[in-house]
Design a protein around this nucleic acid. Structure first.
Lengths: 146, 146
DNA sequence: CATGAAAAAGTTCACCA
DNA sequence: TGGTGAACTTTTTCATG
């Protein structure tokens, strides 16, 4: 289990806000020397606590103004159709997150599309064409608080 | 509306995979000159398509092995309690995402805790103590596909 | 007016006290 | 652990198509 202390947590907080901050500025922010800070970041990367760095995109700026939570039920005994379902989840760009869950739905998807027409195409031409999918319910996202 | 062409999309794809790639390598990957690539990244940042850069953390490595989707209903006419609710969503570290949605639930939360005890504390000591919250249902996350 | 090359400023990362 | 500096990267400037 990798040890993560108070300073490591401060480093993580700062990198969450801006992953492209320079090491000198990061050291200043968390109150440690440049060398020590650099070694800590390295250690967090090596231990796997930091899995990587990514870009935050503004979906609206990219013309992706429609979001929804889709609750999906799979067909029982659809074992042969399951692997293609998993693969498709990964390939489909509109699907931002896919979780297997307890409860009424087997899967919760976070879906991002250009508009309601795009979402309609996503359902008709992709989701309901998957042999593994039995049914799905949609909750539109009105506002993203976080 | 900012123009985003094929090369911009390639840049975005590459930065999604690794936001800390050097500009020279990025230019090589997308097949353009270093200067041109740098100006494109700048333009994507300035236009707001790129909102920022962040770190991807491995929750399990950090001892956060429990995840759930929580469906929250607010009390009607709880107008005075709403602003504190929004603020609390932002402050609470366990809450990774919070969406206002249509349907039975008013809000969908993605929650990450250490274990089921931590989640129990999250519900008892935080969520059910919010005056704005009327009720909540939980779906445990069994597996994250994406 | 956009592009690329190249100089100037700043950053990373291995090494040593 | 903290400081130093060579290698590398970013960002500005300038000449060219």
């Amino acid at each position: 289990m990798p040890e993560v202390d108070r300073i490591d947590l401060k480093i993580i907080q700062a990198l969450k806000r801006n992953a492209r901050i320079s090491n000198a500025e990061l050291a200043e922010t968390v109150g440690t020397s440049v060398s020590s800070c650099w070694r800590r970041v390295r250690a967090l990367e090596d231990s796997g606590v930091i899995a990587g760095y990514t870009v935050q995109l503004d979906d609206k700026q990219m013309g992706m103004g429609f979001q929804a939570i889709v609750h999906v039920q799979l067909r029982r005994h659809a074992h042969d159709d399951f692997a293609p379902f998993v693969k498709a989840m990964h390939l489909q760009d509109e699907i931002r997150a896919c979780w297997a869950t307890t409860g009424q739905a087997d899967y919760h998807l976070h879906v991002v599309c250009a508009d309601i027409d795009g979402f309609n195409r996503f359902l008709d031409e992709f989701l309901f064409r998957m042999p593994a999918v039995a049914s799905a319910q949609t909750n539109l996202i009105l506002r993203t608080l976080k």
